[in-house]
Design a protein around this nucleic acid. Structure first.
Lengths: 173, 173
DNA sequence: CTTATTCTAGAAATAATGTTCTAATATGGG
DNA sequence: CCCATATTAGAACATTATTTCTAGAATAAG
C-alpha cells in the first residue's frame, strides 16, 4: 500500500516498495512526478473499463458503466484505493510537471467527451448522468473502502439508485 | 479556507486566519490538536442537525436525514468543506491527543446508536440505512464540492435514490 | 570480453515545516 | 490604578522530508 493517511512520503514509498530513493528519482524525477504518475495510471485503468462499458448498450443505458465502479474496486483493489480514497488535488497540483498535466487533461477530455456523447444519445441532462454514473457509485463504495471489501450485494443497490434517477429522464422511457 | 490540497501547514493557518503561531499553540497545543478540534467541531455541528432530523418522523422515515447533507453544505459551506472534502484520517490519527480521540469515539457512538435505533424501528438493514443516509448523499454533494455550490435540485435526486433503496425494504411498506 | 548506457544505492545536502521560547500586550478583578 | 493572569507575537530552534550526488551494479550491444 503506497498511500496511507493521505500523505505520501518518499521515505514510506522506499520502505513499502523496497526501491531506493535514487531509483525513484531516476524514474519519476520528483515526488510530484511520482504522485502524478500514480494518479494517471490509475485513472487510465479505470477509464479503459468505463469507456468499454459505455460502448455496450444494454437494456438500461449507462447501467453497466455505473456498476463498473464497484467492480473495479473488487477487481483491482490497489488501484481502486487510489481512485476512491485520494483526491486528485492530493496527487496533482499546479507544480505537477507540465507534461503530466497535459496527459491528465487529455484523459479527462476523453471521458467528458464520452459522457457528453452518452447524454446526447440518451437525452439525459449532464448532471443526472454524472450523478448516476459517478456520484452514487462512488459514494456507495466509499462506505467500505479503505479497509473492507466492496460487497457484491452493493451492485443491486447502486442499480436501484441509478434506475430511480435516470429512467424518469430517459426520452425513450 | 483553512484546508487546501489536503495539507494543513501551521504557516498557512497563520496566514489565512491572521492568528499567530504562538496563539495557535497556546490554544490547541499542537498541530494534531488543531486538526482534531476542527474535525470534531465540524462533526458535532453536522451530527446535531442529523440527529434532530432523525427524531422527526415524516412520511418516509429517514428521508429528512438523507437530505440533511446537501442542506448542511448550503447552510454551512465552511464546515461542510471539512466534512465532505477531508478524510477523518487526515485530521485525526493515532497520535491525536488522547482526550480528543475519546471525544471522537463518544460522538461516533452517539450517531451509531441513533442509526441502529432507527434500523430497529424501521426494520432496515444497517447497510441499507448507511447507504441511503450517508453514502448516496455524500457521493452526490461531492460532485460539486469544493468549488461549486450544491444545487437545490440535487435534493430531489437524492430523494429518488433514497426511496428506491429504502422503500422496498421497509416492513411497513 | 569490453564498453557504453541505464539503473540502483544510500549517505549527505538542502529545503520545508512543526514547535518552543521569551518578551510584549491585552484583560479583568480588587 | 495596579497587579495577576491570560493571550499574542514572531524570531529562533528542532525536526522531518525532499532532493542531489557519487560510486557501484546490472544490462545490452558490438
Amino acid at each position: 500500500m503506497l498511500v496511507r493517511d493521505g500523505e505520501v512520503r518518499m521515505q514510506s514509498v522506499v520502505e513499502q516498495t523496497g526501491v531506493s530513493v535514487g531509483s525513484l528519482y531516476h524514474r519519476f524525477g520528483s515526488r510530484e512526478g511520482l504522485l502524478a504518475r500514480a494518479w494517471l495510471d490509475t485513472l487510465a485503468a479505470f477509464h479503459a473499463r468505463f469507456l468499454a462499458a459505455l460502448d455496450q448498450p444494454g437494456e438500461v443505458p449507462g447501467l453497466a458503466e455505473a456498476l463498473e465502479t464497484p467492480r473495479f474496486c473488487r477487481d483491482e483493489p490497489d488501484k481502486a484505493l487510489i481512485l476512491v480514497c485520494c483526491r486528485r488535488s492530493e496527487l496533482m497540483s499546479d507544480d505537477t510537471p507540465e507534461a503530466l498535466q497535459a496527459e491528465l487533461a487529455a484523459v479527462n477530455d476523453g471521458v467528458m467527451a464520452a459522457i457528453e456523447a452518452f447524454c446526447r444519445r440518451t437525452g439525459l441532462p449532464l448532471e443526472i448522468a454524472r450523478l448516476g454514473l459517478i456520484g452514487f457509485p462512488l459514494g456507495a463504495v466509499k462506505l467500505y473502502m479503505p479497509g473492507a471489501p466492496v460487497p457484491e450485494a452493493l451492485d443491486e443497490e447502486i442499480e436501484r439508485a441509478y434506475r430511480a434517477v435516470v429512467l424518469p429522464r430517459l426520452v425513450s422511457s
